[in-house]
Amino acid sequence: MKERLLIPREEIKKRIEELGREISRDYSEREPILICILKGAVYFAIDLTRYLSIPFIIDFMAISKYSGSSSGVVRITKDLDVDIHQKDVIVVEDIVDTGLTLGYLLRNLRARNPMSLKVCTLLDCPSRRIVDIPVDYRGFEIPDVFVVGYGLDYKERYRNLLDIVVLEE
């Protein structure tokens, strides 16, 4: 498959800085819990925290991925270590596309009664959306292309690319 540059590293860095400032401003005097969704959002979440000027707690969560098997249902494979009851929570995602994964996560997290629950995603691909999900902080809106790099993978490859690239056949 061919790779085509979509978002260069400089633009990613600049935008993450902006998001960090925006979140710091919105959450001034508060201490949000950032929930990084494994594995794709790790790179983004860590870089985002470097630009936060407010205190925060970071935690990680992982859910099983659809594998084409007919009988399974989604389940949490790594749950939070912290209690989010009556806390401000920001879910940090690498990409929001169909909204299926995030929809499940938000349903699950809402049941734990956080004070507030917001979504911060590096990439948003609204044209692929199946279920509506509110996105509060968005790095880049992208067209319906298959992207990898900066945490996003294709069969576990390409995560460590510094730029975000389109994989084309």
């Binding site: 659809y66 084409g68 007919s70 249902v73 989604v74 299926l100 929809g103 499940y104 349903r107 279920v131």
Partner: peptide, 12 residues
């Protein structure tokens, strides 16, 4: 059918 399985997986 594949799409229905995907929805089932995510509890939709």
């Amino acid at each position: 059918e594949e799409f229905a399985k995907l929805l089932d997986f995510y509890g939709i």
